[in-house]
């Protein structure tokens, strides 16, 4: 028997999931489910859209309307779902490669439109499903199977990327800091406009092993020690913040939302009659 939350929000007969021991994705998926619950949404009106990769297998486990699409295209599919029926709450679960490499164009343009989607990026800094190749968020200098001598690419800061592209809510949380992550997703869902929440995951199998990060527990300890809440960071010195990753709400503003503006066009054209 699973917990009440899992029983209500997951397709229990599909569990246990395929993710490796210690993978942060299971924690982040539970966070998304808890956030949906906290928002008090009718599960029949919630749509989860995902792409391809480890992260995107989440859709199959979650007990909502779920659309597991093609690699990189989740946000484009989600845009169609949301514009077709703005009454639906549309949440995209995607990965660092899915969202910012093959799907990078869809990400920035959805940000630009300020369409009311909530995008949760499960960022494990690597392509896990294909066996550990470097991704746009693999830190500079780190290794992947396709960066055997160290990654010479510079990595994306996903919330910053989204903010500069026009997202009206951006945030970063971690798999370790669960209550904060749940709250960030919850706020993203409640925000009327495009929200992006990066969830720093943990990939002990590929990223961890390739880069000698120790066990899964060691990697969560790393998150515990190196991820600092942005509010707390304001009281810290530059030296103290050296090499740290800031978490929490990164940006927020209000701007007319895309489907609202389109409904206004329909009204002007008399198409609502």
């Amino acid at each position: 028997m699973p917990s009440k939350l899992i029983e209500k929000t997951m397709r229990v007969n599909r569990l246990p999931h395929i993710w490796c021991p210690g993978c942060g994705h299971g924690i982040l998926m539970r966070d998304v489910a808890q956030a949906i619950e906290n928002c008090g949404l009718d599960p029949d009106k919630v749509v989860i859209v995902s792409g391809i990769g480890c992260s995107s297998r989440a859709a199959g486990y979650m007990n909502y309307n779920t659309l597991h699409t093609t690699h990189g295209r989740a946000i484009a599919f989600a845009t169609g779902v949301k514009l077709a029926n703005p009454e639906l709450t549309v949440i995209v679960i995607t990965g660092d490669g899915d969202a910012t490499a093959i799907g990078g164009n869809h990400l920035i343009h959805a940000c630009r439109r300020n369409i009311d989607l909530t995008v949760v990026v499960f960022n494990n800094n690597i392509y896990g499903m294909t066996g550990g190749q470097y991704s746009p968020t693999t830190p500079h200098g780190e290794k992947g199977t396709t960066a055997p001598y160290g990654n010479i690419d510079y990595n994306f800061d996903i919330p910053k990327l989204a903010e500069s592209a026009g997202a009206t809510y951006t945030a970063r949380g971690t798999a370790f800091h669960v209550p904060q992550m749940i709250k960030l997703i919850e706020n993203g869902i409640k925000h009327h406009g495009f929200s992006l929440i990066e969830g720093l995951s943990v990939c002990p199998t590929y990223y961890g092993r390739k880069n000698k990060k120790g066990s899964a527990v060691d990697m969560y300890n790393w998150q515990k020690e190196n991820c600092i809440d942005a509010a707390k960071a304001q009281k810290m010195s530059a030296e103290e913040l050296e090499g740290k990753i800031l978490t929490g709400e990164m940006s927020r503003c209000e701007k007319p939302e895309y489907t609202d503006m389109y409904m206004e066009i329909i009204r002007k054209c008399g198409g609502d009659k």
Partner: peptide
């Protein structure tokens, strides 16, 4: 433990629920 279990294998059950 429940919050951080990636596999939903451990949790707190409240009696009466």
């Amino acid at each position: 433990c429940e919050l951080r279990c990636p596999d939903y294998a451990i949790y707190i059950e409240k009696e009466g629920e």
